[in-house]
Amino acid sequence: MFEILEKTALNPTVIKMVVDAPLIAKKAEPGQFIIFRATEDGERVPLTIADFDREKGTVTIIFQIVGRATMDLNTLNKGDRIHDFVGPLGVPSHVEGLKKVCVVGGGVGCAIAYPIAKKLHSLGCEVHSVVGFRNKDLLILEDEFRAASDKLVIMTDDGSYGEKGLVTAALERLITEGNQYDEVIAIGPLVMMKFVCAVTKKYNVKTVVSMNPIMIDGTGMCGGCRLTVGGETKFACVDGPDFDGHLVDFDEAMSRGTMYRDFEQKAREEGCNLLNKEVE
């Protein structure tokens, strides 16, 4: 099990893997996540499920190479097996009964936003998608989003593709143009989700965000993934990962996300040479 059936680089640092995991594929729903360990001594790291195929028994993950764990995962190739792959974890995204939704994705967060857009689209919901990247080279899943959206706006920070600017500008324009969304679903870097929520709060549009804090077990045991939501302690692994964005304490989540920055930095520096050798 957990054999990598396909591996594709979507951009220089974002990798897509299709993994043989029939039991997980059978139960997975958009918004849920898996935890992987690339190797026997690897760290446990959560990744939201990017796609699944119940009939083929596959689960797709899309990840950005940011730290040692994702570097290690990237050393595995088609035909290799991921040592541990557990899921589907977390509560599925709420998609029932929505008539019109704006899905906002930022960077590799688009990998998670896409299955939700796809599911909503298949349920007959009107889907507007706003996706943002730093530049054209980092763009991922354009065709997929186009197929799953009634309207697609692509934003780049430098204007090298689509419109120049941030996703928040496009979202605010769509709202002020008169689009009345039942919900905005925002998935991307914490800072992006924070500012999307600031915009939607202004217009009083319900906003759901997908949180991706540091986790270990992912099953409701360690408490490492705790967040403050509406003044209460919540656990992303069993209460989330989706939360009402207007209630999430983003500043706290951003601070907690940097807990091991020094460790990661060191690991990246140590890992780089090794990595360069193995993937040319």
Partner: peptide
């Protein structure tokens, strides 16, 4: 309790 450096014993 959400400061960096606060752990549950489980974690």
């Amino acid at each position: 309790e959400s400061l960096k450096g606060v752990y549950s014993a489980n974690e």
